[in-house]
């Protein structure tokens, strides 16, 4: 837990992550970094990188994990809840509103066409994300092999997600252990 003097209040945790969540179109991470590191100086660059590496390391939504870990560091479990609530309050309200509109008007032919175009663009964005994540791996033969293996096990052999991880993770760990100094 942070020093008594530097502990943030529940309200500060909620507010900081509320702003990050509300500005975070197409990924909250850069906005969270801007608020936590650049604006409020709650963490240094290195501390933020260390905290984010934990959240990438563990499963689940990275940025939600980050808010939980950061909140817990300051105010324990209730701090984690305050930070998570701040992060998700606005996005959840907005997405539920959009979802209800979609359920109500999604079958309207005009709206339907708009959604088709929107979905096509969103699919293109996720392809770009995939290429960004896989990009650095493509230069290392062992990593490229793991990208191909994970894809093949899931998308071509239709194995379940737990089974894919059970097979791919040990192999990937062995390959990484030989490479990482």
């Amino acid at each position: 837990m942070a020093d008594e003097l530097n502990r943030l209040t529940h309200a500060a945790l909620f507010e900081g992550f509320f702003i990050a969540g509300l500005s975070g179109f197409g990924g909250v991470l850069p906005f969270a970094r801007r608020i936590i590191v650049d604006r409020r100086h709650w963490l240094t660059d290195a501390e933020f990188a260390d905290l984010f590496s934990l959240c990438q390391f563990l499963p689940g939504p990275n940025i939600v994990n980050l808010s939980a870990a950061f909140g817990a560091r300051h105010r324990g479990i209730t701090g984690a809840l305050a930070a998570m609530a701040g992060l998700l309050a606005a996005p959840i309200t907005i997405v539920i509103t959009l979802g209800l509109l979609f359920e109500r008007f999604g079958r309207n032919p005009l709206v339907h066409h708009g959604i088709e175009g929107l979905t096509a663009a969103a699919s293109g964005l996720i392809l770009a994300t995939a290429l960004k994540i896989a990009g650095p791996a493509l230069r290392i033969p062992a990593s490229l092999a793991m990208v191909v293996l994970a894809f093949t096990l899931f998308a071509i052999l239709h194995l379940t997600l737990p089974l894919v991880i059970l097979i791919a993770l040990p192999i990937s760990l062995l390959l990484a252990a030989r490479r990482v100094k």
Partner: peptide
């Protein structure tokens, strides 16, 4: 672990795409 996870994530997101 970090080096092991990234390519698997890449393969799965590619499957999603």
């Amino acid at each position: 672990v970090q080096a092991a996870i990234t390519p698997i994530t890449g393969g799965m997101v590619l499957a999603a795409a």
